[in-house]
């Protein structure tokens, strides 16, 4: 059972984004302003200081807010392209 590569990554691959809070680096991709893909490594997970575990019975997923903000900032700064920028 070999898992193939996501056809969407061929056109636009994941790109490194550094967290402005702890400095760790993840791979990110945005197909639109509201869509975000984040691939963590074990090192990034170990370095993260702001992982919020969330609460499933309140409908909350775990998330790192500083990283979310950093990815948004990378888009604003032009470091992370958005594939469909709404035009």
């Amino acid at each position: 059972m070999t898992v193939r590569t996501d056809n969407r990554l061929g056109d636009a691959p994941m790109r490194p984004v550094a967290c402005r809070s702890c400095g760790t680096t993840v791979l990110a991709r945005k197909s639109s302003w509201a869509q975000t893909t984040v691939q963590w490594s074990a090192e990034a997970v170990a370095a993260c200081t702001s992982w919020d575990p969330g609460c499933s019975i309140r409908g909350e997923l775990p998330v790192c807010h500083p990283l979310r903000d950093s990815i948004a900032r990378a888009v604003v700064d032009g470091d992370l392209p958005v594939i469909d920028d709404g035009r």
Binding site: S32, T37, V38, S41, A44, V45
Partner: peptide
């Protein structure tokens, strides 16, 4: 392999 278990997040755009 690490890629099978490493943390991965995907937020869809439902607009």
């Amino acid at each position: 392999r690490p890629e099978m278990t490493d943390r991965f997040e995907f937020e869809l755009d439902t607009t």
